[in-house]
Design a protein around this nucleic acid. Structure first.
Lengths: 222, 222
DNA sequence: ACCTGAACACCGTTCAAGT
DNA sequence: ACCTGAACACCGTTCAAGT
């Protein structure tokens, strides 16, 4: 009788690997154990394969992470096809980016450092800019609101991951429970507003601000 | 006669190490070679010291990076003391955060993943929130505009680092020089607006949008 | 108190070899 | 074409030892 370990590995490799299988397995590992502790060697062993087999499908770890990013894009692109005005669909899509930060808090960190340069990412980018165009924005204005929105949702997404994190025991200060009205009165008064139950409203406030400006821009020029 | 290498190391250790010396040396290394290739061992050898001596001053690599973050905060806090209205000073400070992305493109990546929890970082945070208060924002509104601004400057800062980067030769697509009007007409028309010479205007557009909203909020309630 | 040096348990990636 | 296994050049961190 084979060991439990062996039993877990063998059936997985009835079919040969491909990029999709590998990228989805990588995302699963990152979701479970974090980006920090993710390694090509652990990925190999999760796939029931020698670590270095992955290199037959991805040139290196960077390209593999681009592959994981492609998987994440599959989760946000459908928002662009939801019913509503172009502006509604843009908002839905950027809200889905933020939802990624909630659902995949570890994998979300892959997004900012990687340029969008896979075919999949270019296709998504093109689709998104089509909706900007359909809303009535010219190229220059699309670029500006795109960077404002993308900057906000990625930056705020990362901050929100911090606000939601179960802090490891050793952390000296858990900011969300911070209270020191003598030495830090302002921090003490602001910190309750950064607690978990207020994070939705906090995020939507920024979105309201940006989308109001977008609407105003379209009204003024229309 | 000692070797050049030895000559470089020895005089540096006339004085003993301290956290400031170590953190500034770390920032120098990160600026020069990148965050990816920065290691405790290289830091030790740059300091002319056995790698593990650093652990006498910082508990681990994470705490050392918090120390580097403290050094970066010294570069942006003075903006809060510049002349002008509280709103002017807030804008100056957040513009300095973005300037950090231009001046320290490698070290900038330290900022988003690390919580602000050193004494230095708490002091900065308190100072910043004082200026929000001086401008007339209550705690809830300070929290909201703070996250909008901080999200935007960090997110857009990271994107801008990408836009400015000298892409390594092997990169298949340099987005800023992208041109494929047949397959990707929208990307092709937007990409010129993301080029280096337009990055200042691009960033300021977002700042204008957010600070207009802040001003309007103060006017409406005042 | 401050630094050393060996050791432990890992990394990503290359390469020659196997099927 | 697809995978293996050894090897190379690294990591962060622990720990006993030195001064």
């Amino acid at each position: 009788v084979t060991t439990r370990r062996r039993a877990k590995r063998t059936p997985a490799r009835a079919k040969p690997l491909d990029r999709g299988i590998i990228a989805r397995a990588a995302l699963r590992l990152i979701d479970q154990y974090g980006l920090e502790s993710f390694s090509m060697r652990k990925l190999g062993s999760a796939l029931g394969v020698e670590a270095m087999s992955v290199y037959h499908h991805f040139k290196n770890k960077g390209e593999l992470l681009d592959g994981v990013l492609d998987v994440l894009l599959d989760e946000i692109e459908p928002a662009l096809d939801r019913p509503g005005t172009p502006l509604d669909r843009l908002r839905a899509c950027f809200e889905d980016v933020r939802r990624l930060a909630v659902v995949h808090p570890h994998a979300f960190w892959i997004i900012p450092p990687r340029r969008f340069r896979t075919p999949r990412a270019l296709a998504f980018y093109e689709r998104l800019l089509e909706v900007f165009n359909a809303a009535g924005f010219d190229a220059a204005t699309s670029a500006r609101f795109f960077r404002l929105l993308a900057g906000y949702v990625t930056g705020a997404g990362m901050a929100e991951i911090g606000s939601r994190a179960l802090q490891p025991g050793a952390t000296p200060v858990i900011l969300e429970d911070f209270s020191d009205p003598k030495a830090f009165p302002r921090i003490t008064s602001v910190v309750p507003h950064l607690r978990r139950e207020n994070l939705d409203a906090l995020f939507e406030f920024g979105m309201d601000t940006i989308f109001d400006a977008m609407k105003r821009h379209l009204d003024e020029k229309g």
